[in-house]
């Protein structure tokens, strides 16, 4: 599988797509897809989704959650996606 095939598959996905799903679609392994994504990220082609960084979804500050909210953590649905990746527009692909 080539990196360009992976990029095309991501671009054509109608919504968020997971690594095992990409691997299935491309007939590859999750390890290979993951390595490619990380390499693309290392090259600056995929950027980590800001909202998916650790700690995202917590309250902006204690004060911002102190009124009318369940609390400073305040976000029972806050999730840690580890490293969501967002595709940046490219010049040639």
């Amino acid at each position: 599988m080539k990196v360009t095939e992976l990029l095309r598959e991501i671009q054509e996905s109608p919504g968020a797509v997971t690594i095992p799903e990409l691997a299935r679609r491309l007939g590859s392994t999750a390890e290979t897809v993951r390595a490619m994504l990380i390499a693309l990220r290392a090259a600056g082609r995929l950027s980590p989704e800001a909202g998916a960084r650790p700690g995202a979804g917590k309250c902006a500050s204690d004060a911002s959650c102190s009124v009318g909210c369940p609390g400073p953590a305040g976000c029972p649905f806050a999730i840690d996606l580890g490293s969501g990746l967002e595709l940046r527009a490219g010049r040639g692909t």
Binding site: A56, G57, C59, C65, G71, G74, F77, A78
Partner: peptide, 17 residues
């Protein structure tokens, strides 16, 4: 999805999210 899911906890951080 992220701000909206945060909104299930509290609207304030959801708006900042």
């Amino acid at each position: 999805f992220l701000p909206m899911m945060v909104g299930f906890g509290c609207t304030v951080p959801a708006i900042y999210a």
